[in-house]
C-alpha cells in the first residue's frame, strides 16, 4: 500500500494527488489529510469507484464477540452475521479494525464466513482474532482470515478507538 501524506496542501491538491496516484497504477492507497474539505472531496471521488477506510485519528473498531448477530435465535443470528459481513464489504466506508472474540473467532474459520473477512482484510481492514479463543475452541489450525492477536493488542483497540460492539 502506498502512503501519501497530503497534510498542509490546499484544495484541490489532495483529491488531485489521490487521482494521480491511482492513475499511476496503485490499487491501494493510504492517505493522511488534515482538513474536512479534503476528506469530503476524497470520499466523493472514492465513492464512485473505491472502498474507503476513514481513520480520524481514532479509526472505527467493530467488536464481534459472537458468531451470531444479536441475541435470541441463533439460526437467525448466524444468517444475520453472514449478511452483515457481506454488506459491510459493499459499503464505501469501511472500519479500520474488526476484533473477533469468543465464538466470534468461528467467523474467521468457518467455510461459509471467512471469505468476506478475507476480502475486507485485502481492502486494508485490520482483522484481529483472539488467540486464546482460537485455542479454547481448538481452531488454531482452522484459521482462514485475519491475524492472531492477544488481549494486550485487542485492549488497545477497544480502549483507544471508536468502538461499536455487535
Amino acid at each position: 500500500m502506498l502512503l501519501i501524506d497530503l497534510r498542509g496542501l490546499p484544495c484541490p491538491q489532495p483529491v488531485l494527488r489521490v487521482k494521480k496516484a491511482l492513475e499511476e497504477g496503485n490499487n491501494s492507497l493510504e492517505v493522511i489529510i488534515d482538513n474536512e474539505t479534503a476528506l469530503n472531496n476524497i470520499l466523493r471521488f472514492a465513492s464512485m469507484k473505491l472502498k474507503t477506510i476513514v481513520n480520524e485519528g481514532q479509526g472505527k473498531t467493530l467488536f464481534l464477540s459472537s458468531r451470531y448477530l444479536g441475541k435470541g435465535d441463533d439460526e437467525l443470528g448466524e444468517l444475520l452475521m453472514k449478511s452483515f459481513l457481506n454488506t459491510l464489504l459493499q459499503t464505501p466506508i469501511l472500519p479500520e479494525t474488526l476484533v473477533l472474540m469468543n465464538t466470534g473467532v468461528y467467523l474467521a474459520c468457518d467455510e461459509n464466513c471467512y471469505q468476506p473477512l478475507k476480502n475486507l482484510e485485502e481492502l486494508g481492514v485490520n482483522v484481529l482474532v483472539c488467540g486464546t479463543c482460537l485455542k479454547y475452541f481448538d481452531l488454531e489450525s482452522e484459521l482462514k482470515a485475519g491475524k492472531v492477536s492477544n488481549m494486550f493488542e485487542i485492549l488497545e483497540y477497544l480502549l483507544l478507538r471508536n468502538v461499536t460492539t455487535l
Binding site: 483529491v15 489521490v18 474539505t37 471521488f45
Partner: peptide
C-alpha cells in the same frame, strides 16, 4: 467535476 471531488471548502 463535483463527483470527482473538485468541491471548494465553502460548499461544505
Amino acid at each position: 467535476l463535483a463527483l470527482s471531488g473538485f468541491v471548494p471548502g465553502g460548499a461544505y
